[in-house]
Structures are given as C-alpha cells and as structure tokens.
C-alpha cells in the first residue's frame, strides 16, 4: 500500500503531457515499438535497469539515443566484446606526466543513459563490474569512490540467437535487471513505414564531401522535456496507489513460481518489488493514479520470466519458461489442485 508523503501532489496531467511528448518524439524516429518505449520509460521512472533481448537491427540503439535526446539525458554507448576490461567502462587513473600525479579518467558509465550493447559478449568480470555499479550506483576508481549521475539507467542488449563466444549472464546478475524485454520484429505495416522513412533520409553534406543520412541524423537535438520533468515523473510514480488486493495478486504469483513443479528456480522478492514498481510506472503512463491487474498481467513476463529457471525434466518435455508463466497467470483464477468431496 502506498503511503502518502509530505510532498505536494504532483501535477499528473503535466506528467502525462510530458510522457506523451516523449512518446511522440520517439515515434518520429522509431516506428512501432510502442511497448518497448513504454518499458524504457518504466525503467527510467523507477530507476531500474532494462535488458533488451532481440536480434540485431531492430532499432535498440536508435531507441536509446532518441530517448536520451528527448529528455536531455547524457547518453553513452559501449559495445561489449571479449577483450573489454572493467576500466574501459568504469574509468581508470592515468598518470599526468607534466605534474607526475595520477588523475581519474571517468569511463562511459558516468552517463544518465548507458547502452551496454551485447552485454553477453564481455567476460564475466566486466559484466560483474557493470552490474555491481548498476546495483550500488557508485564506482570506485583507485582509492576514490564516485557516485553515478542521477538519473542512471542501463539499457543492456543481448542477441538471443547467436550464442557462440558469449558468456551467459548468471541468474544473480539477471536478477539485477528490473525488466527483460524481448523485442519482436515489426508488423509488416510498420516495417514498410521504416523503409519509407529511410528512403526519405537523403544525404548530408560534410565539408567537401557528403554522406548518406541515417536515422540518427534525424533525431532532433531539441529536447521535449527536462531532467526536472523526469524527476517529477519519478516522484509521481511514487504517489501511484497500490491496493492490498494488488499486493495479494503479486504475492500469489511469486508463490506459485516457487511451487510449480516445472520450475527449478522461482522468483525472488526482488522480482516482486520490480513488478510492483513497474506496475506503478505503467499505471502513471496510462493516466491512472492506482494500479490494476492489467498492469500486472502486462508486465509479468518482463519482470518475472528472466528470473525463472525450469527443471531439466520440464526442459526435456519441451516446455518453455514463457509457457509455464502463462500457465501460472492463467491459473491465478483457475482451478486449484484442491479437491472437493462430492
């Protein structure tokens, strides 16, 4: 149950206007993907991190770049590779030969929005360094600790198809991502619109030459919202009402993931917290000041699926995690295993 705070009530209408402006700005560059935009906003408003699973070329980077420019956020992108070092992300101390002293060179993690592209291609120590920074929101370089900027959001991506030469994120590290969204290919109509827009991009003159314009060139530099708007939205999320009934729904789902015979590893309490936070943000995005079961059903897959592991028997039977989760959600109102005396 949400508790009333001493802060003044935020202007929900203004927050909705801000959200609509951001979504419209993103829509001018990225076609379709409304659900992904919603998930990114949810992560942004709740201070969580998001893992995007999808094949290359479905506008993951473009989406993050567009979002960062729409809200005036400092954006950084790191392409994860096998030879990446933790210092390449976090930063390091470098020797200034003039003064013969060390000074800190901050890494790309010091951004509001960090895109960790293909996170599963880096060695576990790099993944661990990033995920630890994500959790603690501070970085230690040499003997000095630095707080990461606020807001701070990591958008990590991984390709679910190509697994050769990758290091799968362990369950404990996956658990740190509040959301794991699986991107799909666009519907035909949207894909046609993508192609049509690309045809209209033209070329860009540069000094004495020219280069073909990309979608990145089309992103407007003028933001539609400020960081203050974002902070207001974050505060508004915390004022969204959560009923006891909704809490019971969440607890019931978590409990079922732990008791289902096909599931070897159920959801942690952190999964429940993530589901609750995300539901609040979704309620706000949909213009409500209270959460409803629709939020839970819409977000369950993104919040819970990457935290569940099936048993070997279930895998051998060809069952999938999403199938089992859907069974759990459907079973919420379905017949229990209890029996009645006729």
């Amino acid at each position: 149950m949400s508790k009333s705070t001493s802060h003044p009530r935020h202007d929900v209408a203004a927050t909705i206007r801000f959200l609509d402006a951001v979504r419209q700005r993103v829509a001018t560059i990225v076609v379709g993907q409304d659900v992904v935009v919603e998930r990114l906003l949810i992560a942004l408003f709740t201070g969580g991190h998001i893992l995007l699973q999808g094949v290359p070329g479905i506008a993951k980077t473009l989406l993050a770049a567009t979002l960062s420019k729409a809200i005036e956020l400092h954006f950084a992108r790191v392409q994860f590779t096998i030879d990446l070092l933790p210092s390449d992300i976090l930063g390091s101390e470098v020797l200034d030969q003039r003064t013969n002293t060390f000074h800190v060179l901050k890494g790309p993690i010091f951004a509001n929005l960090l895109l960790a592209d293909e996170i599963n291609r880096a060695a576990p120590k790099v993944q661990g360094a990033l995920l630890e920074a994500m959790q603690e929101r501070k970085v230690t370089i040499g003997k000095e600790s630095f707080r990461l900027p606020a807001p701070f959001l990591v958008i990590a991506t991984q390709n679910p198809i190509e697994q050769a030469g990758t290091f799968e994120l362990p369950e404990a590290q996956l658990d740190r991502f509040m959301l794991c969204h699986r991107l799909q290919y666009l519907p035909k109509q949207d894909e046609k619109e993508v192609l049509r827009r690309n045809l209209a991009l033209g070329v860009r003159r540069e000094e004495k030459g020219a280069i073909a314009r990309t979608e990145f060139d089309a992103i407007a530099d003028q933001p539609v919202g400020t960081q203050e708007d974002l902070i207001c939205a974050m505060e508004a999320v915390h004022e969204v009402h959560v009923s006891d009934t909704f809490l019971d729904h969440v607890v019931e789902i978590l409990d079922r993931t732990r008791k289902h015979p096909a599931i070897a590893l159920g959801c942690s309490p952190r999964a429940g917290i993530a589901l609750l936070k995300a539901s609040r943000a979704r309620a706000l995005i949909h213009g409500r000041d209270y959460v409803v079961p629709d939020d839970l059903y819409a977000l369950a897959e993104d919040c819970l699926l990457h935290r569940m592991r099936l048993t070997y028997e279930a895998l051998a039977d060809g069952r999938t995690t999403s199938g089992v989760l859907e069974e759990l959600l459907s079973e919420l109102g379905a017949v229990h295993a209890t029996t009645a005396k006729a």
Partner: peptide, 27 residues
C-alpha cells in the same frame, strides 16, 4: 478480495472463450 477478483476474471475468460489467449490479451 484478490481471489474474488481472480475468479471473476476467470469466469469471464471462460465465458468469452479466452482461456487460450495470454493473460495480457485476455484482460
């Protein structure tokens, strides 16, 4: 209350033959 709500949702899922739809699509 939570169980009542889940049961009413299930009743209507069955009435509208939405048992095989995902929970998100059904609601």
């Amino acid at each position: 209350h939570a169980e009542l709500e889940r049961l009413l949702l299930s009743v209507w899922r069955r009435r509208l033959s939405l048992e095989h739809a995902t929970a998100r699509d059904a609601i």
